[in-house]
Computed example of a mutant assay.
Amino acid sequence: MFDPDCRTWPFRSAEKAHPIASKSAAPIVVVGSTGDAATPYASAEKLAAQLGNAVLLTREGDGHTGYGWSACIRASVDAYLIDGAVPAAGTRCATDAAG
């Protein structure tokens, strides 16, 4: 049986999850998709909040990841990586591709 996230392994870690924080001065862009079953949107919201200096870029729609599904997400991510342009807080993008 293929188990990519190891949920069926008989071993459990004794370590507890800990908050993630960034000491980076540069803003961080977190991309989340509202209908992503593999990485739930609520997790993207929590990550962006924990980082403190992050902007959450949202893709509305089903499917895993955002970059291949939306020209708006691609343009925002490319502008961030190439020019350092951070999308406005609350930016939401439609799905316009089939991944």
Rank of each mutant, 00 (worst) to 15 (best):
G84V: 09
P4W: 02
A21D: 01
I82D: 14
L57E: 01
I82P: 00
A48N: 09
G61F: 01
D3K: 04
M1S: 10
A89H: 12
G90A: 10
P40F: 01
Y41V: 02
A85D: 15
P87H: 06
A85T: 15
T39F: 08
T39H: 09
L47R: 08
L51Q: 06
A26M: 05
S22Y: 07
T65S: 15
A42N: 10
G35M: 11
A88F: 07
Q50I: 02
R7F: 03
L57N: 02
D36W: 08
R12E: 14
D62R: 14
S22P: 08
T8N: 11
T8K: 05
R92F: 04
E45N: 07
S24K: 05
W69V: 00
M1C: 04
G99T: 02
D62S: 11
A37I: 11
W9L: 13
G63L: 11
R59N: 00
A88V: 12
C93V: 06
T58M: 02
L57P: 00
A42V: 13
F2T: 05
R12N: 08
T91F: 08
V77A: 11
Q50L: 01
W9R: 12
L56R: 04
Y80K: 11
V31N: 06
G52E: 06
T8C: 01
A25Q: 06
V30G: 07
Y67N: 06
K46M: 10
G35L: 10
G52P: 06
W69S: 11
A94G: 15
A49G: 15
D78C: 03
P87A: 10
A48H: 02
A88R: 13
S33F: 02
C6V: 11
R92E: 13
P40S: 04
C72S: 08
V86I: 13
S70M: 00
L56G: 01
R92N: 06
V31M: 09
F11S: 09
I82Q: 11
S13Q: 06
W9A: 12
T39Q: 03
K23A: 10
A54Q: 03
S22D: 05
A44E: 07
A38R: 15
C6S: 10
P19G: 11
P10E: 02
E45W: 01
A38S: 12
A26K: 15
E60W: 00
A26D: 14
Q50T: 07
D78A: 12
L47K: 08
T91I: 03
I28T: 10
A54H: 03
L51E: 05
F11H: 07
A85C: 01
V55G: 00
T34K: 10
G52T: 07
P40T: 08
G63W: 08
R74I: 02
A14L: 10
S70G: 05
D5T: 13
T34L: 09
F2S: 05
T58H: 02
S24G: 08
W69F: 13
G35E: 09
G90Y: 10
V77C: 11
L81N: 09
E60N: 14
R59W: 00
G68M: 04
G68W: 03
A42M: 04
